[in-house]
């Protein structure tokens, strides 16, 4: 098969666009897709400083490379989840990637921040691992963005991630999540702006970009996500896509076209107006979910972690 643009030997085919590209033309295609997404959803303002969540996987490392090529100001943030060898490899590959290219990177450990590794958190709190991971990341990403004076948080979610998440949210009619499933969420209530510049590109396209650009990423799957529903939904969507190329993109972008009509702004879905009285991050109640999780793990945490306002301490002082 030859490249549809220049007729050289193709290295990748894209069935949903009924096309194929050589390495150079694929690079131009992919960069155009990212530029189009950034422009269409007004993801960045001039002089924005970006915090990029980097896992060490193909999508986030590739996005780091792409945003840097677009001459944007990017600071990488990696959270070591403490999942034994998998996390060691993820952190190492992220560090090496950043060092080789001279990119700036912040590395934090969930064990230092939450008081335990992800497997221990999942076990102790009886939460599904992906749920505990998501909760911790949302909190720590937002905190890091504010701490390092970043105006926007970028993540490497791709079309497959978004379409499978949409399918899961629709199957369970998760109205609250559907309302927020947008490629760009504005900053509000102390929550930083969030963007997903890869939402037009599939996992295969991102893996192809990473391969062609010599990006050494973590290939193996997170051992704690083996039973994740998202992988199951991805398989279903890929089966449909095989029979009818383009359905995945039509499904997801069709939703985006209709989301404003389907889920108009409602005051109930307004941003958090409170500040957690322990960590001072935005939240809906007096103590945020992350601090509640930390309290479950350690009823007597280091007071410095909680700015000296652990509820137990407060209640003791009050009684005194």
């Amino acid at each position: 098969m030859n490249c549809r643009v220049c007729k050289k030997k193709a290295v990748t085919a894209i069935p949903r666009h009924n096309t194929a590209f050589c390495a150079d033309c694929f690079d131009r295609y992919l960069m155009d897709q990212v530029r189009k997404t950034i422009k269409e959803f007004r993801m960045f303002e001039p002089d924005d400083r970006i915090l990029l969540a980097v896992s060490g996987g193909k999508d986030s490392l590739a996005l780091w490379d792409i945003l840097t090529r677009l001459e944007l100001d990017v600071l990488g943030y990696h959270l070591d989840l403490g999942i034994s060898e998998y996390s060691r490899e993820s952190t190492e590959k992220t560090r090496i990637f950043a060092e080789k290219r001279g990119y700036r990177l912040i590395v934090e450990e969930i064990e230092s921040e939450a008081g335990a590794t992800l497997p221990v958190i999942a076990e102790s709190t009886k939460r599904p691992p992906c749920s505990a991971c998501g909760l911790s990341k949302r909190h720590l990403f937002n905190r890091a963005a504010r701490q390092y004076d970043r105006q926007v948080l970028a993540t490497g979610h791709n079309l497959d991630d978004e379409a499978s998440r949409l399918l899961g949210n629709i199957l369970h009619w998760q109205d609250g999540y559907l309302e927020k499933q947008l490629p760009a969420l504005p900053a509000e209530g102390g929550l930083i702006r969030k963007v997903k510049p890869l939402n037009r590109l599939t996992e295969k396209e991102m893996a192809t970009y990473a391969y062609l650009n010599g990006i050494d990423y973590v290939i193996r799957e997170c051992p704690m996500s083996a039973d994740a529903k998202q992988i199951f939904y991805k398989k279903i969507l890929n089966d449909i896509e095989k029979e009818s190329p383009g359905t995945k993109q039509f499904f997801y972008f069709g939703f985006l076209d209709r989301s404003q009509k389907m889920f108009p702004y409602s005051p109930e879905a307004s941003p958090p107006s409170e500040k957690c009285r322990m960590c001072h991050q935005p939240c809906y109640t007096d103590i945020c979910s992350f601090c509640r999780l930390r309290m479950k793990l350690s009823p007597f945490p280091d007071p410095e972690q909680f700015n000296g306002t652990h509820p137990d301490v407060i209640s003791l002082h009050t009684e005194d």
Binding site: D59, G134, K137, C222, S225, A228, Q230
Partner: peptide
């Protein structure tokens, strides 16, 4: 190329 979980 397929990855899963809560995201990254």
């Amino acid at each position: 190329v397929i990855s899963g979980g809560s995201g990254r």
